[in-house]
Amino acid sequence: MQMAKFISIEGIARRYPGKGSASPTTIFEDLWLSLDRGEFGCVIGHSGCGKTTVLNILAGLEAPNEGTVIVDGQAVTGPSLDRAVIFQSHALLPWMTVIGNVSYAVSSRWPQWSRSEIRTHAQKFVRLVGLSGSENKRPSELSGGMKQRVGIARALSITPKILLMDEPFSALDALTRGTLQDEVRRICDETGQTSFMITHDVDEAIYLADKIFLMSNGPDAVVAEVVENPLPKQRSRVDLHRHADYYAVRNHIIDFLISRSKGFASSGAPHDPLHAPVVIPRAAAAQDDAALPSIGRSR
């Protein structure tokens, strides 16, 4: 018997009512995806396909019009500390300091802890995101990148069952972004953290994800493909581009975004929500890499 998936999004739909007599707008319908425990999934698609709405439904912040979401055998009916969210914006409490924002999350997770235990635990994650020395600053005294780092520390500090991320690194400078990608990847590898992230960065998805969900254009979007990342589980940023399968999977995703993401909703072709993941074999990979435009290819 097949084991149940740790995350199972089953046939969900999200529609918004039209104005007056106008028909409702269907963002997506009959959308399915799943992740095993400890997997890292990334969703890529053009703006308007409903990526953030899917994440909000998984977080319990929105309810689907149809379908259900199951996490660790339980249906999602609302927010939970088992599902931590890192938003695009920092979403900090402006009257609290850096350590106060992180400590507030920690105390919500472990209310029985002493003040000293809470602060020690919070300080560990403040240090992790490179904000040692800024513990007593308030959000108004921080740069945009620093604010987002506090949000990342706050989410990681409660050691959630699922880490949900909505383009969490997009506001950061390149050096900090890379450092935090490395840290999130290290934490997920060491702890077996199950993670689900939205990104527009193809290279970020290839570096972080085990599965990459490609969504067609909205409205009426679907999960068109599930790409199994062919790169080794243990991979590093330094030599990522040297791997034999790197450009093949990168070009496959870029080709989808440029050429194939428009056809699913408008074609009316049947879509199997239980379709097998797309696996890019080595032999086909070399052929695809040679045939596609050399977007971002080293010369």
Score class of each variant (00 low, 15 high):
Ala174Lys: 13
Lys137Leu: 13
Asp210Ile: 01
Arg282Lys: 05
Leu292Gly: 05
Pro64Trp: 09
Ser47Gln: 08
His275Gly: 07
Leu33Pro: 05
Lys211Asp: 11
Ser89Phe: 11
Leu231Lys: 00
Ala285Gly: 15
Ala75Val: 08
Leu93Asp: 04
Leu231His: 02
Asp82Ser: 05
Ser80Gln: 09
Leu31Met: 13
His243Ser: 04
Leu175Gly: 12
Asn251Gly: 15
Gly145Arg: 01
Pro281Lys: 00
Val76Phe: 07
Ser114His: 03
Asn217Ile: 14
Gly130Arg: 04
Ser143Cys: 07
Arg109Pro: 04
Arg127Ser: 12
Phe125Ile: 11
Ile162Trp: 01
Ser80Gly: 08
Lys147Gln: 06
Ala224Tyr: 14
Ile57Pro: 05
Arg242Val: 11
Ser157Val: 02
Trp95Lys: 04
Met96Pro: 04
Gln123Pro: 00
Pro281Arg: 10
Ala209Trp: 10
Lys147Met: 09
Thr159Trp: 12
Ser170Tyr: 13
Arg235Cys: 02
Arg242Tyr: 11
Leu33Arg: 00
Ser23Cys: 08
Pro293Arg: 00
Leu81His: 10
Ile27His: 06
Asp30Arg: 03
Tyr246Val: 07
Ala91Gln: 15
Ser132Lys: 09
Leu131Pro: 03
Thr26Glu: 04
Arg242Trp: 13
Ala284Pro: 07
Ala63Trp: 09
Thr53Pro: 04
Leu55Ala: 05
Gly78Asn: 08
Ser47Tyr: 10
Pro24Phe: 09
Glu190Asp: 12
Asp245Glu: 13
Val102Asp: 06
Leu240Met: 15
Pro139Asn: 13
Lys124Trp: 00
His275Met: 10
Ala122Asn: 04
Val76Ala: 07
Gly18Arg: 03
Arg109Met: 06
Thr52Ile: 07
Ala105Arg: 02
Leu58His: 06
Thr53Gly: 03
Ser80Ala: 12
Ala171Lys: 06
Leu214Lys: 02
Lys19Met: 15
Met165Tyr: 13
Ala248Pro: 01
Leu274His: 11
Asn229Gln: 10
Pro230Ser: 12
Val279Gln: 11
Gly133Pro: 05
Gln123Arg: 10
His121Thr: 10
Val279Ser: 07
Gly145Ser: 09
Ala75Tyr: 07
Glu228Ser: 14
Pro79Ser: 14
Leu172Asn: 14
Gly178Pro: 12
Arg149Ser: 08
Met96Thr: 03
Phe40Asn: 00
Leu31Arg: 03
Thr120Met: 14
Ser47Pro: 01
Thr52Pro: 00
Leu156Val: 08
